[in-house]
Amino acid sequence: MRTKLSGFLCVWAFFLTPDCVSGTFPKAQNVTWDSLNFKTLLTWSPKPVNYSYTVEFSKQGQNNERIPSCIRTSETECDLTSGLTDLKGRYTADVVSEPVRGVTSDLTEDPYTTSPFFIPYLDTVIGKPEFSIIVSDDQKKVTLYITDIPTAIFNEKKQRLTIRDIFKDELQYKISYRKAKSTGKKEKLSAGSEIELTDLEKGRSYCFNVQAYILSRSPGKQLGELSNVQCSPEEATSIFEEYSLTVIALAILAIIVIIAVVIAVIVLCWRLWQRAQRKGSDCL
């Protein structure tokens, strides 16, 4: 019965439109949310040949919506940033396989693939933060100034929001730091974007990494991307500040011993050579 009805629809559409196709289209595969700093793309595969895709999305419990640029498209991604207005909403999307523009089909329902659920507030990846390092004049304190990452979200005044604007008190920063040329590291959490560190050795260079930390997220999604490494400058120090007197004395003693051994070897070799020369003369 469904086959007869589909054939009738295609015959009827033939008189209204120049083209009508029968049969089905491949379903979209690998439908995935790809979101960084709230710029959210829906991606899928494969590239369509002689058919197109339309994306329909909705917040849980509401009707489907469409983005004009993602209707009968030959692309395999759709920017849904502007449509996900409730950042704490739970969204899903259908990627529908359809004929290209100007062509109809005899299908009563086009094939589609449904995405996993996506909640922007909980699932978007937070990118690498940028920060600067200031060392106090007395070399006893290092302050990190972190720039809150801008997002793809704008407020009513068309001003771009930062992750601080969105997450508010739930946003913290995790700081990892270590002495330059050392593998051991320490970590610290800070609720603010200005972090003072006072447990550092005076004059030593330290290297820092920073990443966002969102308290309300599941453990696997709490941390953002790790920043690039930045190191504080190292104050020039004398050998007496760098090493203890004991170490310096032992080093001097070791050098004296090495020199004495070298001299003794040279003298011994010289005497052996002279003795060999004398024995050679006696033989003559």
Rank of each mutant, 00 (worst) to 15 (best):
C269F: 12
D137L: 07
I153L: 07
G61H: 04
T162M: 04
Q211N: 09
S216T: 14
V267F: 13
I163P: 06
T183Q: 11
K221R: 12
R275T: 06
E187R: 08
W273Y: 05
A13R: 06
I153C: 06
Q274T: 02
T237N: 12
K221N: 07
D199H: 11
E75R: 14
C70F: 00
L245A: 10
A13D: 13
P68G: 09
N209T: 11
E170K: 13
V135P: 10
T183C: 07
V55P: 01
D86Q: 02
K202S: 12
Q230E: 12
V95T: 05
F25I: 00
A249W: 13
K27C: 10
A180D: 13
A251Y: 09
T143P: 08
V11S: 15
S74A: 06
K174C: 14
N64M: 13
R2V: 11
G280R: 07
Q222F: 03
I163A: 12
Y53N: 04
I258P: 02
P129W: 00
P116H: 04
Y213V: 03
V142H: 03
F240R: 08
L253Q: 13
D106M: 11
K185S: 13
T17G: 02
K157F: 14
R72T: 04
C283Q: 11
E156C: 07
S190G: 08
T54I: 07
I126E: 00
F14M: 02
R101M: 08
R66H: 01
T76H: 01
